[in-house]
Computed example of a mutant assay.
Amino acid sequence: MTDSLATSIATLQEMIQEAAIVAGFTGAGISTESGVPDFRSPGSPWMRHKPIPFDLFVRSVEARREAWRRKSIMDDLYRDARPSQGHLAIASLVASGRMPAVITQNIDGLHQASGLAEDQVIELHGNGTYAKCLACERRYDLAWVRSRFEASGDAPVCEACGGIVKSATISFGQAMPEGPMRKAQKLSLTCDLFIVVGSSLVVYPAAGFPALAKESGARLVIINREPTPLDEMADLVIHAEIGQVFSSFAHPAALLKNSSTP
């Protein structure tokens, strides 16, 4: 570890200890260290098996078949993914009481796998680890969907109402979820420290939350391997591997050092 990186990590720890409310914001970079492919990286399997746009999924039976075929391929690629050091660090921040919830652009469910409760994860782009009926919102396990799809070759329909069953992600062209957007906005407005972890900050409206927090008086930290459009407004920018930055954050006790918490 270089002296400059060590200094930046020490500064980050001090900022966390000084903050009353910390907001976390995570993107694909936190999960690439778990083996989940990044959508925009060159050669990404997501580019070979692109998600079907929402309007086409709803309109076309054939598109729904193709969507479930592609999802099965992608699910198999990262079926064994486990929370990374970054996920564990976020879980530690939540456990310490400093972070009420983490806002995430990811759909892989790894924050929940790290120990966070559903209400501690604000999913802006939905969740790809289960499916829902678009009509009645009944929830389905992916194993149920896959067994029926592989047995018949047809996209399954809801057993309760006959509606279209879709992965619980927010597809291109689908409206952003109102509840999570409201929660993300509230946390951005009330926090005094906003930490971006592994996001390129180019996908809107999600990428607007760090700027909102900064404009509302919070300090802004960006941890990402590559530069982002918001680096210039940040109070601290760390261009490094996420696991390396958070290697000392795995236990809540490390975050409470020198704080007023008993």
Rank of each mutant, 00 (worst) to 15 (best):
I170R: 14
E241K: 12
P205G: 03
S152K: 13
K166D: 11
K166M: 12
P210H: 11
G128A: 07
I122W: 02
L124T: 03
D231S: 05
L193P: 00
W144I: 11
E150L: 15
I238S: 00
E178I: 08
V203N: 03
T169G: 14
S171L: 10
G128D: 01
S152F: 09
L124G: 02
A211K: 15
L124V: 05
Y130W: 10
L230M: 08
I238H: 02
G198N: 02
G126Q: 10
A240C: 12
E137W: 12
L142K: 03
C191Q: 06
F209C: 15
S167M: 14
S247T: 14
R139T: 14
I164H: 10
G163T: 07
M181W: 04
S152P: 14
L110T: 00
M233R: 11
G198V: 05
S147L: 14
P227R: 11
A211L: 15
F209M: 15
G243E: 00
V221D: 05
Q174Y: 01
C161S: 11
C136T: 07
D231T: 04
D235I: 14
L201P: 11
H111T: 00
E241D: 15
K132T: 13
G217S: 06
N127M: 06
L110F: 00
G198Q: 02
K186E: 12
R148S: 06
S147C: 15
S248A: 08
C158G: 11
S188A: 08
S114R: 00
D141M: 07
S199L: 10
D108K: 00
V237S: 05
H125K: 07
V203H: 05
E137A: 12
Y204R: 04
A184M: 03
S199Q: 12
L110K: 01
V202E: 09
